[in-house]
Computed example of a mutant assay.
Amino acid sequence: MKNIEKCSLLLLIAFSFFISAQKLNSDIGDKILKVENSLSPSVISGSDKVPSYNILDRMKQFHVKGVSIAVINNYKIEWIKGYGYADEEEGRKVDVNTLFQAASISKTINSLGFMKLVQLGSIDLDKDINTYLKSWKFPYDSISKRKIITSRNLLSHSAGLGGSGFMGYERNGPIPDIVQVLDGISPANSKPVRSIKAPGLEFDYSGGGTVVSQLILTDTSGKSYEEFMKKEVFEPLQMTHSTYSLKNDTLNIALGYYSDGKKVKGKYHLYPEYSAAGLWTTPEDLAKYMIECQLALKGKSEKVLTQKYMEERFTPVVNYKESKVALGVFHRYKNGVYYFNHNGGNEGFTCASYGSLDKGYGVVVMTNTNNQEFMLEICNSVARVYDWDRFFVPRFTK
Score class of each variant (00 low, 15 high):
residue 284 E to I: 14
residue 233 V to C: 03
residue 257 Y to F: 15
residue 244 Y to C: 03
residue 241 H to P: 00
residue 258 Y to L: 15
residue 300 K to H: 06
residue 290 M to G: 05
residue 232 E to K: 12
residue 273 E to L: 07
residue 268 Y to M: 14
residue 235 E to S: 08
residue 223 K to G: 00
residue 231 K to V: 03
residue 288 K to H: 06
residue 266 G to N: 11
residue 282 T to L: 05
residue 277 A to H: 04
residue 241 H to D: 14
residue 289 Y to C: 01
residue 249 D to Q: 09
residue 262 K to T: 15
residue 293 C to M: 10
residue 270 L to A: 07
residue 278 G to F: 08
residue 229 M to D: 02
residue 260 D to F: 10
residue 260 D to H: 07
residue 275 S to R: 05
residue 293 C to N: 15
residue 254 A to N: 08
residue 242 S to D: 00
residue 233 V to R: 04
residue 227 E to Q: 08
residue 267 K to I: 07
residue 283 P to N: 01
residue 264 V to D: 12
residue 274 Y to T: 00
residue 263 K to V: 14
residue 283 P to L: 11
residue 228 F to D: 07
residue 299 G to D: 06
residue 271 Y to R: 13
residue 241 H to T: 02
residue 240 T to Y: 04
residue 240 T to V: 07
residue 289 Y to H: 11
residue 277 A to Q: 10
residue 297 L to M: 14
residue 277 A to V: 08
residue 254 A to E: 12
residue 223 K to L: 13
residue 297 L to V: 07
residue 300 K to Y: 10
residue 232 E to M: 13
residue 296 A to M: 09
residue 279 L to E: 08
residue 269 H to W: 09
residue 258 Y to V: 05
residue 294 Q to R: 06
residue 243 T to Y: 09
residue 264 V to H: 04
residue 248 N to M: 07
residue 241 H to G: 00
residue 294 Q to Y: 02
residue 270 L to T: 11
residue 223 K to P: 01
residue 281 T to P: 04
residue 264 V to Y: 02
residue 223 K to E: 12
residue 295 L to N: 07
residue 264 V to P: 03
residue 284 E to Y: 11
residue 232 E to P: 00
residue 272 P to L: 01
residue 235 E to C: 02
residue 254 A to Y: 14
residue 267 K to E: 04
residue 245 S to W: 15
residue 250 T to W: 04
residue 247 K to L: 10
residue 301 S to Q: 12
residue 274 Y to I: 03
residue 278 G to I: 09
residue 281 T to V: 05
residue 270 L to M: 11
residue 262 K to G: 02
residue 235 E to G: 02
residue 256 G to Y: 10
residue 284 E to F: 14
residue 227 E to V: 04
residue 282 T to V: 11
residue 253 I to H: 06
residue 265 K to M: 08
residue 243 T to E: 12
residue 255 L to H: 07
residue 276 A to N: 13
residue 252 N to E: 04
residue 226 E to A: 13
residue 234 F to C: 06
residue 241 H to E: 13
residue 260 D to S: 03
residue 297 L to Y: 06
residue 228 F to H: 05
residue 297 L to H: 03
residue 288 K to C: 02
residue 258 Y to T: 05
residue 268 Y to G: 01
residue 269 H to F: 13
residue 265 K to P: 00
residue 289 Y to W: 15
residue 276 A to W: 05
residue 239 M to D: 01
residue 291 I to A: 09
residue 247 K to C: 00
residue 228 F to I: 10
residue 223 K to V: 00
residue 269 H to P: 02
residue 226 E to L: 04
residue 239 M to N: 01
residue 280 W to E: 12
residue 277 A to T: 10
residue 302 E to V: 01
residue 236 P to R: 06
residue 283 P to A: 01
residue 232 E to H: 10
residue 233 V to A: 01
residue 265 K to H: 09
residue 234 F to R: 02
residue 267 K to M: 05
residue 298 K to V: 05
residue 237 L to A: 02
residue 295 L to C: 01
residue 291 I to H: 11
residue 223 K to W: 04
residue 271 Y to M: 10
residue 298 K to H: 06
residue 252 N to F: 01
residue 299 G to C: 07
residue 246 L to M: 15
residue 281 T to A: 05
residue 301 S to Y: 11
residue 302 E to G: 00
residue 242 S to C: 06
residue 230 K to N: 13
residue 237 L to H: 03
residue 233 V to Y: 03
residue 282 T to M: 08
residue 302 E to T: 03
residue 296 A to W: 08
